[in-house]
Structure formats: C-alpha cells, structure tokens
C-alpha cells in the first residue's frame, strides 16, 4: 500500500523533516499490516527492508540451541531491522507478536535517498543511532540481572 506523506507525521523523528523530504521518504515506503504470528524476517536472512512500527508489537527472537529466545519486544515509534542499514545479515528474527501496522522501507532506496538528501540521511541515521543506543543500555541493564538473587530488592 502506498503511503500518504501525512502518515509519516506519526513518527516524531520524521515530523522534524521538511515536507518535501517527508514526501521523498513516503515515495519509497509502503504500509503493511500483519497479524500475530507473522514473521517479518529471520535471523541470518540477507539484508532487506527496515520497518517503523506505527502500532502493534514486534518481538525479536534469537536461536539458542533448539529454541527461539525472545530478547526484546518493540512497539510504536520504534525501528525494526536496523542492521540492513549497515548491509548486514539479520541478527534476529522479527516476529509479529501483536497485530501491527508498519511502515516498510527497502534498505537500498533508503540508503540512496540518505546519500542524496542529507536532511533525510541525518534524520534516519540519528534515529537509528538513538534506537541502537537505547537498546545497548537496555541490554546492559538486562545483563546486570537487576532482579536476580543478590541484587537489591
């Protein structure tokens, strides 16, 4: 489904972009809806699209032996599949865990647009940086096992 540029207004970081830049981004984006249980991509897949969650929930899982371990769930305003911006294989599986509405943007045209229009490039990379930074901090907190035995409270 093609995207009306006004849809991008839902994303706070895109609202800061000028209207013409938002229109350029909308031109390469599509709107998708998925039911719970759908898989956006699997761990090890070749790089592909990045997704912005408009509503719903996407859970990232990783293979641990014979089972899939849920490592993080993502919701509205969050980025899914950032590793494609680095042309890397998927590092986790993205499972729709709650009916979701997503903005899908293929990495190649997005990277081309970022190269061509520095405003878009800065906005996208800044958002990706913030997302990755938040996830790094969150992961550290999970590693600290704050609620484990020996931790306070």
């Amino acid at each position: 489904m093609a995207v009306d540029p006004s849809t991008l207004d839902a994303m706070p970081f895109l609202r800061r972009l000028a209207a013409d830049a938002r229109a350029e981004l909308a031109a390469i984006a599509t709107l998708e809806e998925h039911s719970a249980g759908a898989v956006l991509f699997r761990e090890g897949d070749a790089p592909g699209a990045v997704f912005l969650v408009l509503e719903g929930r996407v859970t990232l899982t990783m293979r641990v032996g014979q089972r899939e371990a849920s490592v993080l769930s993502l919701g509205a305003d969050e980025l899914v599949g950032w590793s494609s911006l680095l042309a890397r294989r998927r590092v986790a599986t993205a499972l729709i865990s709650q009916r979701s509405r997503l903005l899908r943007i293929e990495a190649s045209p997005l990277l081309e647009l970022c190269e061509r229009d520095a405003r878009v490039g800065y906005a996208v990379m800044a958002q990706a940086f913030e997302d990755v930074s938040d996830r790094l901090v969150d992961t550290r907190m999970q590693l600290l096992d704050l609620y484990g035995k020996g931790a306070s409270r």
Binding site: R57, E68, A69, L72, S73, E78, Q142, D145
Partner: peptide, 23 residues
C-alpha cells in the same frame, strides 16, 4: 508488564521497564 527473560510461552513485552515507559 515486561520481562527481562521471556519463556517460550510468554507473549507479552520483553525488555526493561523503562522501554515501556518511553513508548
């Protein structure tokens, strides 16, 4: 509600509680 380590049957949020708050 969210958990740091999900079980195979858990369908809720996974991650730290501040992530929920941010959303």
């Amino acid at each position: 509600a969210t958990v740091d380590r999900a079980s195979a049957t858990w369908r809720g949020h996974v991650g730290v509680v501040t992530r929920l708050l941010k959303r």
